[in-house]
Write a protein that binds this DNA or RNA. Structure first.
Length: 892
RNA sequence: GGGAGCAUAGCUCAGCUGGGAGAGCGUCCGCCUCACACGCGGGAGGUCACGGGUUCGAGCCCCGUUGCGCCCACCA
């Protein structure tokens, strides 16, 4: 039965059909199998309510490439999928949805809210998963997990309790970042600094005289960007060695409006150079001031409610919104004559990375994870190379963070998430941390126990992802076999949120690191290099691209033309090129299959007799490609690897080999030759499809399965390996020489404006027997590829038209009798230019070869190579000179 | 303020350990050559940011300058 591909490449339908088949055949599913080595990757779980964006598409593509490649290499691969509950962002979206319905979250209550959230998760949670499938992701969907499912819940509780037992988790009062809109605390990593235009208000407080009266003449002046916080001032500070203020240290100033007397303290935190060298100290509303306050035992006066309105400590400003209060206070100070001036000032303001609300530093009781001990193994892992970061430059960022680690604030004042397993006794106030709700207070026996209202930071559960998804805290066979995982692929943006936390969590709980390699990739940007964002509306929907060009084209685009570590610009023209490539291989395959006779199937058959030089050349080139692609993939240089396949298929296989072989497919009485060519065509095509499969899984599957019947899927076929018996160096040189001659003839034809349909006779002259032999074997190619009507190879100029145009080749000269068409002046110019180029090359070669240091220092093969080059240049130089002589002869 | 990085063809970018400057897109010329016009063939276009240095030899190594974004910290 003759096999055929559809007439035109159309990814629509084809991709869905193939994916469905893969799923049905359970190729993605992995089971423990002690006879095979595992290769495990865990997906960075996308937000459960998210929709697929280019960042995901890139991330998943890279993972899928690695997983598919390893699977073909014979590993028992598991790509563990799942989604993240994404505490804050999910809660914000549900709250907004409620708001639109006129429902207040607080009025609804926790229980109803969570019901709603779960319903939401059920409704939208599948979207991202189905979108990942469109990309071709070979995840083991049977193992899909969710960071808030029952197993993850147990894991989270277990880890919390264990860390608490070891004293790593504590509840403490600290200045934390507070989002007044989301109404929750934030970790440092969730705060994003934005440059904002603001003002610097210069204010003065009157000094208290020795006799206790308020001075009307002496003031301390300072500047602030947040005047409203003065309500909570409990000191002003100066530098201890600042001569300007030495005399007032220890005295008091009057805090206006509030009329509180507050001390002048000396602290080295103050920068003498900045402003007046005086700082107001508000311990409850600034992290630095908090530290100063601790050192000087200053009271901490909290003046703000959780929604950033002023509380009762603000006196008459109580109830006012923070910015309204700022305005009012400035006006009042101005009226009192205490406002010195207002300057424009641009400074960085901390904002919540989810909602971009300006965060308010507040003192709060929160749960923290003590980091100083936990982080040590995470530092060691990278330092000692047990975990390799790709690219290596990621290490700097990594250590920058680990070296300046601060305790991790893990409590969030939200409802959607893992509730903190801590209970407070209503009678004695004792806090009990336990795996299950205690019946009575272990301290006083009280029966009134209330669970902590807060939930944990989303990243607390994702930090356990590599082992909780494999069954931990149970000691499952999966965990034993698939853990530790191998490679983690993720963007730069979550190196601190997630990667480091997985590393120390895994080491602490499992005693081993969660993976041996982390691959960081850049951001996908728009054509102008801007971040894709909803507000700019410049995002490109991967699904739209898939619909238009196919997932294969999208995947190829994402990994080509950029190294992975850096950001990339994404635009449709690049996808079009990928689609064109898909179309190219589709048509090349179609051509090959068209030429297969009934029941002909060369797949995995022994090399037949009668391979010609071109056949050996393409096999040899394919062989090199296999080696180069594999080497680059081992280095995770996916872009370089696939570029090699691309170049090989398009340039060498399609544009040269297929064209070279065509006459042998149609010719009479050359069955042996035809079969040899067909064997090479199918062998190289099948091999190339394998090399390409991790990158373009769908089209390669379709071609592979249509062409041969021995194997049911390319997914589970074996990765090509380099074979020494396919290494044909001599044939490679031979075909390269012929290609050069073909290009030479074509060039002359174009230059001379010879009609493409016009055939011309050619003669190749060389005194070297070996060279002549090479070109003799190329005679047919000159006819089929360069429009030669006939070709002769000979050792002298006998019978060569005096006025023929000539082309210099390596060790030979090619003559075309086109004298009547020659534009002598133009040809002279061309040859003179060529002569000049050769002069330059010769000079360089000469210089190197007479250089003793080069001869002594360089590798022997380099020197030999240079000698060969010089020889070639000398020959060509002589030929061009000869041509010029002939040309000048023609003129006369 | 600290750190790491980037500056290569009109545009977007490759170029691994130093030894003849590349791709895609665009552009120009010629082709509907029986797999493919989503194609084929042939061109044009670069003092590899600037200035020094090391080297027989530097886009690649070292120092400095300029320009551009990034990460971290954050000064009231």
């Amino acid at each position: 039965m003759k096999k055929e591909l559809a007439k035109a490449y159309d990814p629509k339908g084809l991709e869905d059909r193939i994916y469905k088949n893969w799923e049905e055949k359970k190729y993605f599913h992995a089971e423990v199998d002690e006879t095979k080595k595992p290769f495990t990757v865990v997906i960075p779980p996308p937000n459960v309510t998210g929709i697929l964006h280019m960042g995901h598409a890139f991330d998943e593509t890279v993972q899928d490439i690695l997983v598919r490649w390893k699977r073909m290499q014979g590993y028992n691969t598991l790509w563990q999928p799942g989604t993240d509950h994404a505490s804050i962002s999910t809660e914000v979206r549900i709250t907004n949805e409620l708001k639109e319905e006129g429902i207040d979250k607080q009025a609804l209550g926790r229980e109803k809210f969570l019901e709603r959230a779960w319903a939401w998760k059920e409704k939208y949670g599948g979207t991202i998963v189905s979108q990942l499938k469109k990309l071709g992701s070979s995840c083991d969907w049977e193992r899909e997990r969710f960071t808030m499912d029952e197993g993850c819940n147990r894991a989270v509780t277990e880890v919390f309790v264990r860390l608490h037992e070891k004293g790593y988790i504590y509840k403490g009062s600290r200045i934390i970042n507070w989002c007044p809109v989301c109404n929750t605390s934030l970790s440092d990593a969730e705060v994003e600094y934005e440059e904002q235009q603001g003002h610097l208000w210069h204010i003065k407080y009157p000094l208290i005289e020795e006799d206790g009266s308020v001075s009307t003449t002496r003031f301390v002046e300072f500047a602030t960007t947040r005047p409203e916080t003065m309500l909570g001032d409990t000191a002003v500070a100066v530098h201890p060695e600042d001569d300007r203020y030495r005399d007032i240290i220890g005295r008091e100033v009057l805090l206006p409006i509030v009329n509180r007397r507050i001390p002048v303290v000396a602290d080295t935190y103050v920068d003498r150079e900045f402003g007046t060298g005086v700082v107001k100290i508000t311990p409850a509303h600034d992290p630095n001031d908090f530290e100063v306050g601790k050192r000087h035992h200053l009271p901490e006066i909290n003046i703000m409610n959780d929604d950033a309105t002023i509380n009762e400590n603000g006196g008459k400003y109580a109830g006012m919104e923070r910015y309204a209060c700022r305005k009012a206070i400035v006006e009042e100070l101005d009226a009192m004559g205490l406002l010195v001036k207002i300057e424009d000032y641009s400074h960085n303001v901390g904002t919540h990375d989810r909602c971009h609300t300006t965060v308010e530093p507040l003192i709060k009781k929160q749960w923290f994870v003590k980091m100083d001990e936990l982080i040590k193994p995470a530092i060691r892992a990278v330092k000692e190379g047990e975990i390799r970061l790709v690219p290596k430059s990621a290490e700097k960022r990594y250590f920058n963070w680990t070296d300046n680690i601060r305790d991790w604030c893990i409590s969030r004042q939200l409802w959607w998430g893992h509730r903190i397993p801590a209970w407070t006794c209503a009678d004695c106030g004792e806090i009990t941390v336990a795996r299950t709700a205690p019946a009575v207070c272990p301290k006083c026996g009280g029966k009134q126990l209330a669970q902590d209202e807060d939930v944990l930071d989303t990243w607390f559960s994702s930090a356990l992802w590599p082992f909780e998804t494999l069954g931990w805290p149970d000691d499952t066979p999966d965990l034993k076999y698939f853990f530790p995982t191998d490679v983690l692929v993720t963007g730069w943006d979550i190196i601190f949120f997630w990667v480091i936390r997985m590393i120390f969590s895994s080491y602490e709980q499992m005693g081993t690191y969660p993976f041996h390699t982390v691959i960081f990739h850049g951001l996908v940007r728009d054509a102008q290099g801007r971040k894709m964002s909803k507000s700019l509306g410049n995002g490109i929907d991967p699904l739209e691209i898939i619909g238009q060009y196919g997932a294969d084209a999208l995947r190829l685009t994402l990994v080509t033309g950029n190294d992975m570590g850096s950001d990339m610009r994404f635009y449709k023209e690049r996808v079009e090129n990928s689609r064109n490539f898909a179309n190219k291989i589709w048509n090349a395959s179609r051509f090959i299959m068209m030429n297969l006779h009934e029941d002909e199937d060369y797949y995995n058959t022994a090399m037949p007799e009668g391979l010609e030089p071109a056949d050996k050349w393409i096999l040899s080139r394919f062989n090199s490609t296999v080696r180069e692609v594999t080497e680059n993939m081992e280095r995770y240089e996916l872009g370089i690897a696939v570029q090699k396949v691309y170049d090989f298929i398009w340039d060498e296989f399609c544009d040269w080999y297929i064209e070279m072989v065509k006459p042998r497919l149609y010719g009479e009485n050359m069955e042996t030759s035809r079969r040899a060519a067909m064997w090479c065509l199918t062998t190289v095509l099948a091999g190339s499809m394998k090399l390409l499969h991790p990158y373009m899984p769908f089209i390669t599957e379709e071609i592979f399965c249509t062409m041969q019947s021995a194997e049911e899927s390319i997914m589970i076929s074996s990765w090509p390996v380099y074979r020494t018996e396919w290494d044909f160096a001599a044939e490679e040189r031979q075909i390269e020489a012929i290609k050069e001659a073909v290009r030479g003839i074509r060039g002359i034809r174009t230059n001379m404006n010879v009609a493409p349909s016009k055939k011309v006779p050619i003669v190749i002259v060389s005194e070297d027997k070996e060279t002549l032999d090479i070109f003799t074997t190329g005679r047919l190619f000159f006819e089929s590829l360069a429009g030669a009507s006939s070709s002769r190879c000979q050792s002298d100029l006998s019978g060569v038209d005096e006025n023929a145009v000539s082309v210099p080749l390596a060790g030979a000269t090619l003559y075309i009798p086109l004298a009547e068409l020659v534009d002598t002046a133009a040809e002279t110019e061309r040859l003179t230019k060529e002569l000049k180029r050769l002069d330059g090359e010769l000079a360089r070669s000469e210089k190197m070869l007479t250089n003793e240091k080069f001869l002594a220092g360089a590798k022997p093969e380099k020197v030999e190579e240079e000698r060969e080059k010089k020889k070639k240049y000398e020959q060509m130089h002589a030929q061009v000179e000869e041509q010029l002589r002939r040309l000048s002869g023609m003129k006369q």
